[in-house]
């Protein structure tokens, strides 16, 4: 039954959410199956390292399972999961020691083996700067920017998920982008 429901993209989540709240593990298994990719991608974009992204993706689903009773049905299940995941990611970033970020450069080298090492290193550094700049934003702006670009959500979805009016979300996005402008200006200078 659940599988058929999931296959239909336009299906309302209501019945599934009711099953999740009732502690139905099968229903949650389908949520995991369907949303792991989007949650993992968001984590990877924020954290930069695949291994960390895997860990935080798992932590996020476990946190969501524990907190499913608090889900308020005001947005999509995916949005709720992505919100949990982005928070977990920024928490993980805050715990990370600066020296450990060297691992992300190595990851960049692995991804693009055809390019010159120096260019790859510079690109990886630039990616680090983008991640660090987003992570350094104040919270409402950081959350909106992360959900919009790293979580690949529309502004309407962000508004629904966060429970904020759409115009407030637009303002948060604009202010977040304004604060990121210097980072990208320096990118252009390179």
């Amino acid at each position: 039954m659940w599988q058929a429901a999931w296959d239909d993209e336009g299906v309302d989540d209501t019945a599934l959410i009711a099953a999740l709240r009732a502690g139905d593990r099968d229903a949650f298994a389908l949520v995991v199956e369907r949303e792991t990719s989007s949650v993992y991608r968001a984590c990877l974009r924020i954290l930069g390292r695949p291994h960390d992204a895997e860990d935080v993706t798992q932590e996020s689903f476990v946190a969501a399972y524990r907190a499913i009773g608090q889900f308020r049905s005001e947005g999509s299940l995916r949005g709720w999961l992505l919100r949990i995941a982005t928070r977990q990611c920024f928490r993980r970033l805050a715990q990370r020691r600066p020296a450990a970020d060297l691992g992300a450069i190595g990851d960049g080298l692995l991804v693009d083996t055809s390019a010159e090492p120096a260019r790859v290193a510079v690109a990886a550094e630039a990616r680090d700067e983008i991640r660090a700049a987003v992570a350094a934003l104040d919270d409402p702006y950081r959350e909106v920017v992360a959900l919009r670009f790293f979580g690949d959500m529309s502004l309407a979805e962000v508004a629904e998920t966060t429970g904020r009016p759409i115009n407030t979300v637009k303002t948060h996005l604009r202010r977040g982008l304004e604060r990121l402008r210097p980072v990208f200006a320096s990118e252009v200078d390179r």
Partner: peptide
């Protein structure tokens, strides 16, 4: 940065969920 998750990740997550006490 839009790579796919490793194949076993969903199963790993599910195993972690299974370890959780039943809600």
């Amino acid at each position: 940065r839009s790579g796919e998750p490793p194949l076993g990740l969903a199963a790993r997550i599910q195993a972690a969920i299974d370890d959780e006490p039943e809600r």
